[in-house]
Design a protein around this nucleic acid. Structure first.
Lengths: 367, 367
DNA sequence: CGCCGTATTGAATACGCATTCAAATCAGCT
DNA sequence: AGCTGATTTGAATGCGTATTCAATACGGCG
């Protein structure tokens, strides 16, 4: 990494930090007590007489004292820091997830250290080394490619971790995902019930279990209606590839009358290509269904029928699993969260179908 | 904060960490050397004989040793951690900025701790306290409301910080923004030159200097052509408010023939409302110009003419300013980065105008 | 051979805090 | 008053590393 070289330069330059830090001993001296007493005042659960507590707090306020988290962590062995590893924020699902993860952890007294890793297993490994050196109490691996070696190593090191929106075959690994198979099946049933007969799928990524599950569920859903997919193309969760895939699908003489797309991010590209490039009407000529229900899906421009990944619940589950593991509770395996179908205008709606609840988009869209 | 209560519970429960940590002393013992020698092997710039270095590295590898960053930081007074404070990630400008900030800092050997703060000065204050307790080496305040008290305090504590995409009146404060006044002026000139005569502005936030500068520049740009704004409404960088503002603008008998919008995020809402709600054509009936040039602006659906905020350059400037301050170089004041006008299809283009270069969108859109 | 400057090395210490432990204080009781 | 048990307190110690500092080894030179 380039970082190492620079680090060396800095170390050598040996520039001192401004460092007019106030320590617990300073406060103790000013308050006329011992350093441990100061420590106790700032350690919830320790007892100090009201009189001394008052004196200490006053001295601390006057001096602007704040306990040094590093020193505290060094001797408690808990850093109250969680490492979050992300692949990229292009897909609008992730910014929201990150913000909510951060807020949820923050509410529990934890801090978040973010790392971006290209979607390559080896880079993820390096990043995790980095995290371990930082004594994080736990790790959230958000949708990055994880090698089995890495998960084995993390398990061996007994460092708590949870996979977020990504899983491995091993259902014993702590992971939180949507119920992707069920979601895909729901999409298949819905499009078949809507009377479509040439139903294509622009799938995610072959290497991602998420994508494979959605695809398998989709195929199963169609099969219930005696249908098979018109065609399946891999879009790799990439906008450009989704555009190319759409063109490829609609290039031939007979083309699909419906497309199930592996995530919303690609579905937006599909909608755009259908309308602007190919001059097709949605849903009259083609129905489109996505996956995620990011806030943009509810925008009038897209009005995308999609399977929701409930970010709130996924985040809540992830955080509580991770904190449980940090507190030595028994390790849980994969948790799958139901993916309801959100009916909007981008796909023909079969008679009698309604959204699970009267949701358009419950999330806050301000700011 | 709710965090404190939870913290207390944890402290009291006193659950030990897994903690099978390998220390430098373990490595020293195994390699038959002293702990300081191990330390020197892992401290770039320190000298150790080749023979011992080899033995130490071997022992370290076998034991899976990694230096404990916390202990190291405690000792050197440098944590190699930067705190990044964000308001929200709804506006797609910020996810990209965050990712690039993180990558740039990472390349310099720094880690990023993220904090989300609602856009209230007091909350930002609390977050900064938190950051200070974590001994961050520097702070990036990305577009959050900063009180003068806070910046004064940071200056007094001599903790390096940079405002990103936000500034205060005091031009001596370290801040990186686009050249918002110039950008706004460019928008005004462009729309006036395009022959529009009723040019409205959906502005940002009155409390944000960014927004005020863009607005003032816009007014100045129009004035050069002898025009005054048709009307100015505040959208507060909020999608819903932008929609309401658009409806309000076009509610009356005479309505604008062009709208300059305070940022792209709002401009997308404006475009949608114009087309779907009001049945107007863009740019035939109304021209729209945004500000930011987020990746979505280049999507065919929007094809938004906009003033670019060059994220790369802003991030680069921010990082180098911050690192300079960390290394005790003299403090710089505000840096403004030029905002070129990116011509696309959402606004009528005057004869002879072209984009500065043949950019549609140079940024990587994969992933 | 003896002396001196240089390069390595380990013992000791400091970083800032939490925690153990023993001393001291205090209240409550006989 | 005298004793016991509970509570509060400070001295000492440890967390894992980097950094003095003195001691040692080494190489070159007269």
């Amino acid at each position: 990494m380039a970082g190492a070289t620079f680090l060396m330069a800095l170390r050598q330059s040996n520039v001192p930090m401004p460092d007019s830090r106030i320590t617990a001993s300073d406060v103790a001296r000013k308050a006329g007590v011992s350093q441990p007493t100061v420590s106790r005042v700032f350690t919830p659960g320790a007892r100090v007489s009201p009189d001394r507590e008052r004196r200490v707090r006053e001295a601390a306020r006057e001096l602007g004292y704040q306990p040094n988290t590093l020193a505290r962590s060094l001797n408690t062995g808990r850093s109250y820091t969680i490492g979050v590893v992300l692949a990229c924020l292009q897909n609008p699902f992730y910014p929201e997830a990150l913000q909510r993860l951060s807020e949820a952890l923050s509410a529990k007294g934890y801090h978040v250290m973010v790392f971006f890793a290209a979607n390559m297993a080896e880079e993820v490994d390096g990043v995790v080394d980095n995290l371990l050196a930082h004594q994080v109490d736990g790790i959230i691996l958000a949708s990055v490619s994880i090698s089995n070696e890495l998960t084995d190593r993390l398990k061996e090191l007994k460092i708590p971790f949870v996979l977020f929106n990504r899983a491995q075959e091993d259902r014993g690994l702590p992971a939180v995902t949507a119920a992707n198979f069920e979601g895909g099946k729901r999409a298949g049933r819905f499009l078949a019930a809507g009377g479509h007969v040439r139903i294509a799928h622009i799938a995610g990524w072959q290497k991602s279990l998420n994508g494979r599950d959605r695809q398998a569920g989709f195929v199963a859903g169609l099969a219930e209606h005696g249908l098979a997919p018109f065609r399946i193309i891999y879009g790799e969760y990439d906008r450009q590839k989704a555009i190319a895939a759409t063109r490829a699908l609609f290039d031939c003489g007979t083309f699909p009358d419906a497309v199930f797309v592996g995530n919303d991010h690609m579905a937006f590209a599909v909608l755009e290509t259908l309308r602007m490039d190919l001059g097709l009407r949605v849903p009259d000529d083609v129905s489109v269904v996505g996956y995620d229900d990011v806030p943009m899906a509810a925008w009038g421009t897209y009005d995308l029928t999609t399977l929701r990944q409930p970010v709130n619940r996924m985040v809540g589950e992830t955080v509580s699993m991770l904190l449980a593991m940090i507190n030595n509770h028994p390790l849980q395996g994969r948790v799958e969260i139901d993916s309801p179908l959100i009916l909007r205008g981008s796909a023909r709606i079969p008679d009698g179908w309604t959204s699970p609840r009267r949701i358009r988009h419950p999330r806050n869209t301000t700011g």
